[in-house]
């Protein structure tokens, strides 16, 4: 049973409709985003399911996952806090900002908080150089930019994410 076809039939159809029917392979990247979803990583079964839809082998799909940085083969935090520390941001204090954020969260570079909610990592340029320091939050809900930050402001954003996750969990239990 193909999980994506069973769970998201309309979404799969919409994705495939963007490309010529004889070039289904073009759908591999949007399908991988769909598969990654809330769990924020791609499983072996996902590789098979995506491959089945767009006519690729498991190995070919895995080569796509391995090449692009926004797909994850290992589970991480529910939210990935990604701080740009490239040159233009670093000229405006991004390195110090990133170090401060790691310290406040009590994690190493690239680490995940004990509650498994937040992974914090450095990433390459995000096209927001004029509003550094900045970060993006990647989750199953997509990607959000937060700009012109201080460590305090970033901690407020993270607190908001924690509360949203708790509310979601309560809702799921009820």
């Amino acid at each position: 049973m193909n999980r994506l076809l069973a769970q998201y039939p309309q979404k799969v159809k919409d994705i495939l409709a963007k490309y010529p029917p004889e070039h289904k392979r073009s759908a591999v990247m949007p399908l991988l985003y769909l598969a990654q979803g809330d769990k924020m990583h791609i499983t072996r079964q996902d590789l098979v399911d995506v491959g089945e839809i767009c006519g690729m082998t498991e190995t070919e799909v895995e080569s796509i996952v391995g090449f692009y940085t926004l797909y994850y083969e290992e589970p991480g935090g529910k939210f990935r806090i990604q701080v740009c520390t490239d040159l233009p941001c670093a000229l405006r204090g991004a390195d110090e900002f990133y170090a401060g954020l790691c310290e406040r969260l009590g994690v190493e570079d690239g680490g995940t908080t004990d509650d498994g909610l937040i992974t914090v990592e450095q990433v390459k340029c995000l096209a927001a150089c004029h509003r550094a320091p900045m970060l993006q939050v990647q989750s199953g809900h997509g990607l959000d930019y937060h700009e012109n930050l201080t460590v305090d402001l970033a901690m407020e954003i993270i607190e908001g994410l924690r509360q949203a996750a708790q509310a979601e969990e309560k809702e799921a239990q009820a």
Binding site: K18, H23, R25, S26, M29, I64, F67, Y68, V123, C125
Partner: peptide
Amino acid sequence: IYTHLGAGAYICGEETALLESLEGNRG
């Protein structure tokens, strides 16, 4: 007109890498 999202690869700004990526290959 359709949008297509990449997934984090600077090289895909190079036009032939971009086309490879759009075809569902490594960029």
